[in-house]
Design a protein around this nucleic acid. Structure first.
Lengths: 157, 157
DNA sequence: TGACAATAGATGCATCTGCATATAATTCTG
DNA sequence: CAGAATTATATGCAGATGCATCTATTGTCA
């Protein structure tokens, strides 16, 4: 989480073009993002709510047509691996927040539907989640900063 | 990893002050940082090298006085939890990259020393690590962007 | 001094992840 | 149409993490 040591001697040999700002940006990015996430996750847990990943998945379902998506779509949408997605869906289904339905036309395929309980959960999570984002991001950034951050991060994506 | 849905109806009720840029910045941050990290980790693994965390820990040791630190210092330095740090040190010691020495004056305390093999590993990892950072960060950002990113991330820290 | 608090670190357990592979269903091909 | 290739999803296993707790050692204070 700290990376970017005071540039060691060998750096000059191998990476003349790696300027300190780049290393610094890398180090900060990898320090700040997980720290913020952990803070927000802790606030959700504190409120007796599941992790942000559950929210992300359920919210993606909510705004999909029919409030349903194929596992593969969820995977691409949340940028998860296939096996992580499969098991995330397992947990959502086990808790009753989503339903798996096998596509009768192609029985390899499934459609994951948001359940009523899932909609309720989203509604319960969002206020807590949003408050945490506001507290830990919104309050610390000027509006221009937030825009600039988005612009720069999009270059990195 | 996607977060920040198209703002659901209930948002207005609970979080009037949470502007879309803030939510967008949060979402991008949590999308981009892990993706970049995974990419860089993959390049290290590809080169037969251990994860960035090992580099971070060993590099921290390298520039500490005597090339040694207490576990608690490493923990604070890398922003890890106590148990994560303990087991990270286990692995480094098991591979011979570091040594645990019990402090004779207070046998609860240890000092973790960088070994010669550890120094070698740092030197082997840095070129690969730096090249990956340059490729995935340096090349994508204008110099001003990198500075701006640092400045904004520091506000969030 | 002797019991209790505090500190540094380790560890058992449950959970989560990735990797590789397995399973099941469908499509392609000769 | 049989057999191979492809696609969608699941799963066994190993490794890493957090949480809570445990052990060992030292400090405190009556």
């Amino acid at each position: 989480m700290e990376t970017a040591p005071r540039i060691p001697a060998e750096e000059a040999d191998h990476d003349i073009s790696l300027c300190p700002f780049v290393v610094g940006a890398w180090a900060r990015l990898l320090q700040v993002a997980p720290t913020l996430l952990a803070t927000v996750e802790a606030e959700l847990k504190q409120a007796g709510l599941p992790p942000t990943q559950w929210y992300d998945a359920l919210a993606a379902l909510e705004r999909a047509p029919q409030e349903a998506m194929a596992p593969g779509e969820i995977e691409r949408h949340l940028l998860l691996t296939q096996c992580t997605t499969s098991r995330l869906i397992d947990r959502l289904v086990a808790e009753g927040y989503a339903l798996r339905v096998v596509n009768p036309d192609d029985r390899r395929r499934q459609i994951v539907h948001l359940s009523a309980a899932g909609k309720t959960l989203i509604a319960r999570m969002w206020p807590v989640y949003a408050a945490a984002i506001r507290r830990h991001v919104g309050r610390k950034l000027a509006p221009d900063d937030a825009q600039a951050l988005i612009r720069i991060l999009e270059k990195l994506a």
